[in-house]
Design a protein around this nucleic acid. Structure first.
Length: 852
RNA sequence: GCCCGGGUGGCGAAAUGGUAGACGCAGCGGAUUCAAAAUCCGCCGCCGCGAGGCGUGUCGGUUCAAGUCCGACCCCGGGCACCA
C-alpha cells in the first residue's frame, strides 16, 4: 500500500490543470455563465488563514458550479495601493512599487500552491498603470457628469510631522510617530456625490434577496433616512448675518420640551463668535482636538459652552432658549444645529443635568408621571404615549409618528418650517494626501483654475524617483512631478498631488475582471455576458463601506456608459464569511506604548507566557487576525507539512463559514489523517474481491444520502455540514463489505463530492479507480430519490413534553396506526398508569406527544 | 456612545417550534505490535449505584412541545466614513 504523498501529487495535478487550460474563462453566449468572486487581497506579502478560508470557499463554489455545467469566471487580483507600502518605504527605504510587486509575487506563489481554480490570465493589480489609467478616465467621466466636486473637509493633522494622519494612525488623540496631540484641520478635498444616490441605494436594498439581511440592515442604518422638521429660530444678540439659526430635528413633537439650542463647534456661528471671544475660541480649539472619527466624538465627554445668544421659541414669542456650542453636534449632519429636549433624549438629558438646564417632559407612558429621572423616556415612535404638551391642541394620547407629522403640518401651515427628508450618508471624500494611490488627473492653473487633464495625456503616472525620507505626501515633496503645462492654456501649472482613496480602486475591479487588458475601463460585450457577480464572498468587516461604495460606483459607471443598466447591483449574492481569529500578545515599552507580538515570538514555559528573552507577555482575547496586532498565523507551514488539500479541508470543516473561527493547530493533523484514510479506502476498494453482495444496496443508500446532503450543504453555504456528510460516507465505506466494483463506484462518487474541497486528492483517487479524464471535469452526481427513503423510521414519544419512549413505524404510517402503536408501547402504558391520555399530538414523521 | 452580529459538552459544532449534542477534535478503555508510530473496535453532557433528575449566557413569558418565538438583562466580537 502506498501512502498518499501530497507533496508529489499536488504539483502534478496543478500542472495538468494548467496545461489543459481548465480554468481559463472564455465568453460563450451558448452557455450559462457563473461569476464567483472573492474580495481581492491587500498584498501584504504573506497569505494568512483568513485568505485560505476565503479563497477555499470561493474555489469550492467555483468548482461545484463548474461540475454543474456553468461557464465559470473566477479571477484574482490585488488591492495594491495603500498605506502599508508607504510605511515600509519610510521605515526601510524601499520604494513602494518595488515592495508591492515583490509582495504580490510572494503571495501569488503561495496562493498557487493551494490549487485554486483561478483564471490567472486575468490577474490585475490596482497599482498597475494599465488599471489606474482606466480609473483616471472614469474619474474624468464622473467629473463631466457632475458626480465629483470639491469642498472643505476636516482631516487629522499632526502638527509635528506636518502631515495628515489616518484614523488608524491616531492613538489616544496623538500622532503614532510624533506623539503630538492631533488637531483637526480643514482642507479642500475631492468628493463623489454618493448622497445623490442615497434614496436609490436605500430602496434597492429591498431587492437584494441574495444578500444577508444583517448587511442590508447595516446599510439601511448607515444611509439613515429620516423625516423631520427644518426651521429657523430667530436669534437675539447674535452677530450680524446670524439673525436666524437653522435647525433640523427628527422629533419636532418634543418642541414644547425644548430647553436649549446647540450648535457644532464647526458651525459658521461658532466660528464667528470665536473671533471675538477668547473663551469660546479656547473651547472650540479643545473640541478640535477630539479627532475626526464619529466614535471619538461620541465617546468623548459631552461638553458645551453658553454663547450668551438666545433664540425665540417658534410657538411662543416670549419663550427664549440659550444657544450653546456643544462638542457632540456634527456639522456634517442636518444643519449642524439642533434644539435639545432633555426629557426625551439621553444625550440631551446628560447635557442638561451637567449644565443645570431645565428638563420638562412632553409625553409620558400612558398613566405615567410628569417627572424625569436619570433616564430619558425614549419609546419607539410607533408606540402610543400620552402627550402632556403637544405642539397644539389639548393633552391627549397618540403615537410619536402621528405627533411628528402634526408638528410638521403645524409648522408648514404657519409658514415657519417645513418637513424634510435627510440622510445620515455623507458624500464620499476621496482625496488622500498620500503618494501610493491613483493620482487625481486634474491640474491647478493660476489662470484657468481647476482643469481636467486631457484624456490623451492619461495615465498621469506616479513618479519612479520619489523619496520617503520625511513624513507627508512624497508626491508633494517631489522636485518636479507636480509641475506641468495647463491642459487648457499651456502655461505652467501644478498637478493635483492628492491621490484617490483606495476604496475607489476596489469599487470597480469586479467589472474590470471581465476585460482586464482592454484599453477602456470595460468592454460592452464582456460586461454584458459576465456581469453581474453571481456570488461575492468576503469579510463582514466590509459590510458597509466597500459594498456601499461599489453599489454607488456601479451606478456612476452606468451613468457614464461604462456598464449596462442591469449592473446597478453588481453583486447578485453576497456571502460574508466569518473572520479567522487568534489570541493577541502584547508588551508595554518604556514610553508606555503597547507593542504587539506575533505567535512565533511568544513562548509558553514554566514562567507563563513570555517573549524568548523572558519578558512577560499579556495574552489578549482572540480577535480578528490583523497585521497591526501581529496575531497572524502563516498557513504556508501547514501547506508545506501536509499539503494544500489538508489546509483546505481543515478551514472548511471546523466552523460554519459565516462564523468566526479561532485558528488552532489541533485540527490540521486530524484533517490530514482523514485524507489518508480516504486514500486507503480507495486502494482497498480497487483491490477488494467479491465481498458480500447483500451489502451493496446499503452502501448505495449511503452514497446517495451523501450526494443529497453534500449538495444541499454546498447550496446552503454550510460547508462544515458537507464535510460532516463526507465523514459519514467515509465511515459507511469503511464498514462495508460490499463487492469491489460497488466499493469502487462509491469511492468515485466520494472523489466527485470531495473535488471542490480537496481537488488534488480527488483527482488522484479518480485516476486510481479508472475515472475518465479529470474529476474536475466530471459532472456533479445526482442522488436517486428511491435510494434516500428509509425502510422504517423511529418516532420519539413524549409524555407531557418529555421524551419517554420510541416506536418504530413505516415511513408512511397513518395517524391511527401511530396512535395504536403508541398506546400499545409498554413504556407509555407505564407512564399512563392505567389512565387515558388527555390529548395525543401526532406530528407525522417527527414526534408523538401524549398529554396526561 | 450609536448600528450589526454571536453565546449549546473539555473543544469546534448539529438541530423546517418536534428525540439537544449529528459529524469531528481531545480524552478514556481495548485489539494489533518485541516496542512505538500508524491503524482498527468501543465508551464519552452533568449529577446519581439505580429509578431518575438537571442541562443550549441570565431572568421572565407564549406553547401539548422552546436552543429555536416574545420581553428585559449580561458578556464577547465587527463597523463607525483616512487600515484594508
Amino acid at each position: 500500500m502506498v501512502r498518499y504523498n501530497a507533496r508529489e501529487v499536488e504539483p502534478k495535478w496543478q500542472r495538468a490543470w494548467e496545461e489543459a487550460g481548465l480554468f481559463r474563462a472564455r465568453r460563450d453566449p451558448a452557455r450559462s455563465k457563473y461569476y464567483v468572486l472573492e474580495m481581492f487581497p491587500y498584498p501584504s506579502g504573506r497569505i494568512h488563514m483568513g485568505h485560505v478560508r476565503n479563497y477555499t470557499m470561493g474555489d469550492l463554489i467555483a468548482r461545484y458550479k463548474r461540475a454543474r455545467g456553468f461557464n465559470v469566471l473566477h479571477p484574482m487580483g490585488w488591492d495594491a495601493f495603500g498605506l502599508p507600502a508607504e510605511n515600509a518605504a519610510m521605515a526601510q527605504g524601499i520604494d513602494p512599487r518595488v515592495w508591492t510587486y515583490r509582495n504580490i509575487a510572494d503571495m501569488r506563489a503561495q496562493m498557487k500552491l493551494l490549487g485554486l481554480s483561478l483564471d490567472w490570465s486575468r490577474e490585475l493589480a490596482t497599482c498597475d498603470p494599465e488599471y489606474y489609467a482606466c480609473q483616471q478616465a472614469l474619474f474624468l467621466d464622473f467629473l463631466d457628469r457632475g458626480l465629483v466636486y470639491r469642498k472643505a473637509s476636516v482631516v487629522n493633522w499632526d502638527p509635528v510631522d506636518m502631515t495628515v494622519l489616518a484614523n488608524e494612525q491616531v492613538i489616544d488623540g496623538k500622532g503614532w510617530r510624533s506623539g503630538a496631540p492631533v488637531e483637526r484641520r480643514e482642507l479642500t478635498q475631492w468628493f463623489f456625490r454618493i448622497s445623490d444616490y442615497a434614496e436609490e441605494l436605500l430602496a434597492a436594498l429591498d431587492d437584494l434577496p441574495g444578500w444577508p439581511e444583517k448587511v442590508r440592515l447595516m446599510q439601511r442604518n448607515w444611509i439613515g433616512r429620516s423625516r423631520g422638521l427644518q426651521f429657523a429660530f430667530a436669534t437675539r444678540g447674535a452677530p450680524a448675518g446670524f439673525e436666524t439659526l437653522e435647525v433640523y430635528t427628527t422629533r419636532p413633537d418634543t418642541l414644547m420640551g425644548a430647553s436649549f439650542a446647540a450648535i457644532s463647534p464647526d458651525h459658521p456661528l461658532a466660528r464667528a463668535l470665536e473671533a471675538a471671544d477668547p473663551r469660546i475660541a479656547a473651547f472650540c480649539a479643545e473640541c478640535r482636538r477630539i479627532g475626526t472619527s464619529e466614535e471619538a466624538l461620541e465617546t468623548a465627554e459631552k461638553k458645551g459652552i453658553d454663547t450668551g445668544i438666545r433664540v425665540v421659541h417658534p410657538l411662543d414669542p416670549d419663550w427664549e432658549l440659550p444657544v450653546w456650542i456643544a462638542n457632540f453636534i456634527l456639522m456634517d449632519y442636518g444643519t449642524g444645529a439642533i434644539f435639545g429636549c432633555p426629557a426625551h433624549d439621553q444625550r440631551d438629558l446628560d447635557f442638561a443635568r451637567k449644565y443645570g438646564l431645565p428638563v420638562r417632559a412632553v409625553f409620558t407612558p400612558p398613566g405615567g408621571a410628569d417627572r424625569v429621572g436619570a433616564e430619558a423616556f425614549v419609546p419607539p415612535r410607533t408606540e402610543t404615549v400620552f402627550y402632556l404638551r403637544p405642539v397644539s391642541g389639548e393633552p391627549r394620547a397618540m403615537t410619536g409618528d402621528a405627533a411628528v407629522e402634526e408638528a410638521i403640518a403645524l409648522a408648514e401651515s404657519g409658514g415657519w418650517g417645513r418637513g424634510v427628508v435627510k440622510y445620515r450618508l455623507r458624500d464620499w471624500g476621496i482625496s488622500r494626501q498620500r503618494f501610493w494611490g491613483c493620482p487625481i488627473p486634474v491640474v491647478h492653473c493660476d489662470s484657468c483654475g481647476i482643469v481636467p487633464e486631457r484624456r490623451e495625456n492619461l495615465p498621469v503616472l506616479l513618479p519612479e524617483d520619489a523619496t520617503f525620507d520625511r513624513p507627508g505626501n512624497a508626491l508633494d515633496w517631489h522636485p518636479s512631478w507636480k509641475h506641468c503645462p495647463c491642459p487648457a492654456c499651456g502655461r505652467p501649472a501644478r498637478r493635483e498631488t492628492d491621490t484617490m482613496d483606495t476604496f475607489v480602486d476596489s469599487s470597480w475591479y469586479y467589472a474590470r475582471f471581465t476585460a482586464p487588458r482592454a484599453g477602456t475601463p470595460t468592454v460592452a460585450e464582456e460586461v454584458a455576458y459576465w456581469m453581474n457577480v453571481d456570488q461575492y464572498i468576503g469579510g463582514v468587516e466590509h459590510a458597509i463601506l466597500h459594498l456601499l461604495y461599489s453599489r454607488f460606483f456601479a451606478r456612476a459607471m452606468i451613468a457614464t456608459g461604462h456598464l449596462p443598466g442591469k449592473c446597478a447591483e453588481p453583486f447578485t449574492a453576497l456571502f460574508t464569511q466569518g473572520m479567522v481569529t487568534h489570541e493577541t500578545y502584547a508588551t508595554t515599552d518604556s514610553a508606555g506604548r503597547v507593542r504587539w507580538h506575533s505567535p512565533e515570538e511568544v513562548v509558553r514555559g514554566e514562567n507563563g507566557v513570555t517573549l524568548r528573552d523572558g519578558t512577560p507577555v499579556t495574552v489578549g482575547p482572540s480577535v480578528k487576525m490583523s497585521k497591526s496586532k501581529k496575531n497572524v498565523v502563516d498557513p504556508a507551514d501547514i501547506v508545506d507539512q501536509y499539503g494544500a488539500d489538508t489546509a483546505r479541508w481543515f478551514v472548511m470543516s471546523d466552523s460554519p463559514p459565516d462564523r468566526d473561527v479561532e485558528w488552532t493547530a489541533a485540527g490540521a493533523d486530524a484533517a490530514w489523517r482523514h485524507l489518508q484514510r480516504v486514500w486507503r479506502l480507495a486502494e482497498e476498494a480497487r483491490d477488494a474481491g467479491p465481498g458480500v453482495p447483500g451489502e451493496a444496496p446499503e452502501l448505495a443508500r449511503a452514497v446517495h444520502r451523501a450526494i443529497a446532503e453534500v449538495t444541499e450543504a454546498i447550496e446552503g453555504f454550510a460547508f462544515n455540514k458537507a464535510i460532516a456528510a463526507l465523514h459519514s460516507l467515509t465511515n459507511a465505506v469503511a464498514k462495508s463489505r460490499a463487492p469491489g466494483p460497488d466499493r469502487v463506484a462509491a469511492m468515485k462518487v466520494m472523489a466527485q463530492l470531495m473535488q471542490p474541497m480537496t481537488p488534488h486528492l480527488a483527482e488522484e483517487v479518480w485516476h486510481l479507480l479508472g475515472g475518465e479524464g479529470f474529476v474536475t471535469d466530471a459532472p456533479w452526481p445526482e442522488a436517486d430519490p428511491a435510494l434516500l427513503a428509509a425502510e422504517t423510521i423511529t418516532l420519539p414519544v413524549q409524555i407531557n413534553g418529555k421524551r419517554r419512549a420510541e416506536i418504530s413505524v413505516a415511513p408512511d404510517a397513518d395517524r391511527a396506526a401511530i396512535e395504536a402503536a403508541v398506546l400499545a408501547d409498554p413504556a407509555v402504558r407505564k407512564w399512563l398508569d392505567g389512565g387515558q391520555p388527555k390529548k395525543l399530538i401526532v406530528v407525522p414523521g417527527r414526534i408523538v406527544n401524549v398529554v396526561v
